[in-house]
Simulated scan of single mutants.
Amino acid sequence: MKTILLGVSLMSALILSGCQTADTAAESSATSSNTSESQSSSTEESSTSEESSEAQSSIESMEEPADTQEAFRYHINPTTSVVEPIDEAVDPKVALLTFDDSPDQHAVEIAEQLKAINAPAIFFVNGMYIESDEGKAKLKQIYDMGFEIGNHTQTHPNLSTISPEKQREEILQTNQLIYEVTGEKPHFFRAPHGVTTETSDAVMAEEGMVSMNWTYGYDWEADYQTSESLSDIMLNTEYLNNGANLLMHDRSWTNEAVVSIAEGLIEKGFTLVDPNLIESPEREE
């Protein structure tokens, strides 16, 4: 009887072992098949990626980097407002497009034209333009298109002519209005007339913002209030150098010239830098 039971046990073990071997072989076959498919897919994706890379224009992506802190490539020189590479491996031949006094009359159309050619920019907002529902809607349109929103104070005063308390109010009120519309605090500040103060510097530190002026701009001068004259000077000025920080405004002639300016910069070999790639204290946090 024991002999019979032993034989049955041995037979069961052999059958079970055979099943496990078959299962293992099937799994191995499936794994090999998946690996082959994965390698084939990887090859196709690599080929597609190379083709896509070759077709790219020299415009930085407007999408938010997955890891913003590690993705920073540039910073704003606090003295010159030049956009500078963080390290030597980063391309220095970039230009930053900025538009002040937004969103008054033409900012949305300017944003739409830039979006159509995937050109990033900062729109520096005056709080007085976003107190109304119409102004809020315009700001939301610009923000939803992926553009950076900066603070240009509430009523555009020369900060050096008003009290420290009023200076704070001018900056913080606009920050709050922008936050209510976009859900995001501004990372960049531009003082009206380029005049900063000890108070504005202190507010920048408290709010984790970067203060910047510009390297050149012309659209408020009488000689450059046509699209042709403005495009020409913006592209051919002696101040167009690596890291140029271009100042423009919410004006009709600027609106008409914006695409030719952006495309002209690209033709000259400049990359239009994405503000998401410019470091700021708040983003680091």
Rank of each mutant, 00 (worst) to 15 (best):
S28I: 09
D87I: 08
I233G: 01
T79Q: 12
T199S: 09
E112C: 05
N245P: 00
N118R: 10
F188P: 07
P92M: 13
V195D: 15
L97Q: 02
F188Q: 04
T155L: 01
L247K: 03
S17V: 09
S58E: 03
K138S: 06
I233Y: 05
A22E: 11
Y74H: 03
S81F: 10
G208F: 05
S102R: 00
V258I: 15
S28G: 03
S49A: 15
S227R: 12
E206I: 04
F99A: 00
A30E: 10
W253D: 04
V195K: 12
D219A: 09
I110P: 00
V203N: 02
E148N: 09
G269A: 04
I142K: 01
L265C: 07
T43L: 15
L139K: 01
E109W: 11
A257C: 06
C19N: 04
E284R: 07
I130F: 06
L230H: 02
D144L: 08
H75M: 09
E44L: 15
S229D: 12
L16H: 09
S227E: 15
E63F: 13
S260L: 05
S227P: 13
D104E: 11
S102A: 11
K185F: 12
A119R: 01
L114S: 09
L96N: 00
S47Q: 11
